[in-house]
Design a protein around this nucleic acid. Structure first.
Lengths: 356, 356
DNA sequence: ATCGAGTTAGAGAGCGCTCTCTAATGGGTT
DNA sequence: AACCCATTAGAGAGCGCTCTCTAACTCGAT
């Protein structure tokens, strides 16, 4: 058998970049064969495969993604959406702020870690009002992205429902406040809080207080409830608490309040590491030693936990793994649109360092 | 004149989403006319425009971006690339870490602020080795993105050169170490450092030291040089300095060193706010009051500057504006590929707060 | 009336790719 | 020697859109 040897091999693609046709001509085969070689090779003679590969190299061919998407109906892109409140509250974090949150960094990192080896990259979008939510929906409907990975800053976020109603593939980080037929990943907050409670008690702490997250966040409430329940089991039915909103400043203020009202406390569980760090600062200002006088436990095991002085004992929130799982769930859903919503709950673990 | 009234108006698009053809049929016009109405309308009878708009609404039509990109050769997407070192150094920030850097957050925020109103969203990519750099180039060549906005964590980053050689539209944040024909935005670091020097001198400081950034970063060196030159003009030819790498820990260590070697210092200029904040911490630990005993000036005016105690006097680095300008330059270049590389240098300003 | 310029709508040719359908070939059965 | 099935390569029909080119029509000026 002999393959057509092109007489005048591939005319150098004059203006624009080479197409499949150019490669086919250079290799002396048909467009279809080149396509077969470039994508998963099935039923192509090894000699021809090699010829095609050389032609690709010679022409410097790069497939055009738009043409490919047009027929495959796959963008090869997912949207990473940071979604804000349902209304337009003044206290909202701005798009810039959410980035500086170490939590978001971990989510992004986990997602990218999973997606990058698969040649998929996330498109970054913010949705903080009706207009931008519509923008996200339109964007997905236009086929710019195959699905959405959603990180909501508020539990009442409207976007999850909109996405579910539109039948667009999406996965949430954290369970929505109301049940919505949509996939999500979450951590067992109650169990995590229980770990903290058990540890404080095991360390002999008897006058324990807690700094909570915002009451409208189910995750924050689960941490509080889990902590209270576990402490009740240990014989401490009443636990003083001060409300924060996961920021450093709110943590400082909360710790000040706790100290003013309960000067004798010997243990604090903060609903996240940043507030725990703030608590550390306030306690030191008051001349209290950590962990000798007051034991402190945080939540998340974010980068600040190991970096703070003393290093924070905290509950590990496997954010990166959870984010990777989000991406995995989304891609599975994109491949099988009829797949039902699936959710995965991760187990937390206690990380003991110096502060408790 | 009369427009064809469709006898059996738009059959409900059975399986997939409606196409231009469906809308055209519903409106009783041609595909071309619908296209004209949907994009910038030119020369279309108002009555027909209205009919088309109603047909669009009736059918729930959303244009298919892939088909559009195929013919326009525009993706409507830009890549936001965080690019690492030339080699694979161990001290490298991981993808996740770079997110937590408030600096990156500000860049992302500025870029998104500019792009979002234009319906363009950035694709997030990391390039930290030869493979991922190649991935970025291929991605752009495939037409997945029209250009790249590049934030390098190292001055020796190879990606800018690769992009320039490939003729791909790109804009850098910060001037590359070697001259490369590529657009960039930067701030006048020397001027900023001079503002800090002048202010310290004006406040009567005579024994001034500085905490520098990494020596391989042109921006860090420009800040150091600008500070030294300005202090020399004020009659202080020798300025003690300690090297940091822009992290909190390196700032702490640098401040400790300075204090050990120059116990009588009364002013410190740190090359960024994070290190200045660390300096604040170390000074307080040593029982020194800021600004009474030691005045401290940072650089960047990042969110930590206003949040620290005492609030940091710092040099404003207009990162968000610069990032928006990057996006503007990139879009201009995408529209006019022959446009030469243009760079824009911003002026810094001193922000006086409590620390100096 | 006749012409030419200006405006508006439709026809149709692709953009570059994938994928089905068909044709050709090769080897094992009967 | 006739047949069938499996394997491999090519032909060609779109995917949904934009955009040029042309036809039709309007209108003011000759």
């Amino acid at each position: 058998m002999c393959y057509k040897v092109p007489v005048n091999a591939a005319p150098p693609p004059s203006g624009s970049s080479p197409t499949l046709e150019d490669v086919a001509r250079a290799a002396g085969v048909s467009r279809a064969t080149v396509s077969r070689v470039i994508n998963g090779i099935r039923n192509v003679d090894p000699a021809i495969q090699e010829a095609v590969r050389q032609a690709v190299a010679a022409t410097g061919y790069v497939p055009n993604q738009a043409a490919r998407s047009l027929v495959t109906r796959r963008a090869g892109v997912v949207a990473l959406v940071v979604s804000g409140a349902s209304g337009e509250e003044p206290g909202e974090p701005s798009p810039g702020q959410v980035f500086t949150d170490p939590f978001f960094g971990r989510v992004a990192s986990g997602i990218i870690g999973f997606l990058r080896p698969r040649g998929i990259h996330p498109i970054l979008m913010f949705a903080d009002d009706a207009e931008t939510r519509a923008q996200v929906l339109t964007y997905l409907r236009q086929g710019n992205a195959d699905g959405a990975l959603l990180v909501s800053t508020h539990a009442e976020d409207l976007l999850p429902r909109l996405l579910a109603d539109a039948g667009l593939p999406a996965v949430l980080f954290a369970r929505p406040a109301e049940p919505i037929p949509i996939s999500y990943v979450d951590v067992e907050h109650r169990t995590g809080a229980k770990l903290a409670a058990d540890h404080l008690v095991a360390r002999g702490r008897r006058r324990v207080a807690t700094i909570t997250g915002p009451p409208n966040l189910p995750a924050a409430q689960a941490r509080l409830a889990g902590f209270r329940d576990a402490m009740a089991v240990h014989g401490h039915p009443y636990i003083p608490c001060a409300e924060g909103n996961f920021t450093y400043h709110s943590g400082e203020a909360a710790m000040e309040r706790l100290l003013a009202e309960h000067p004798g406390l010997d243990g604090v569980f903060a609903a996240n590491d940043v507030m725990a760090q703030a608590a550390l600062f306030v306690l030191r200002q008051h001349g209290l030693r950590v962990p000798e006088d007051v034991a402190v436990i945080g939540f998340d095991d974010s980068s600040v936990a190991a970096a703070s002085r003393p290093a924070l004992t905290t509950v590990r929130h496997p954010v990166e793994d959870m984010a990777a799982e989000m991406a995995r769930l989304l891609l599975a859903r994109v491949d099988q649109p009829e797949r039902p919503a699936t959710s995965i709950i991760f187990e937390p673990a206690l990380v003991v360092r110096e502060s408790a």
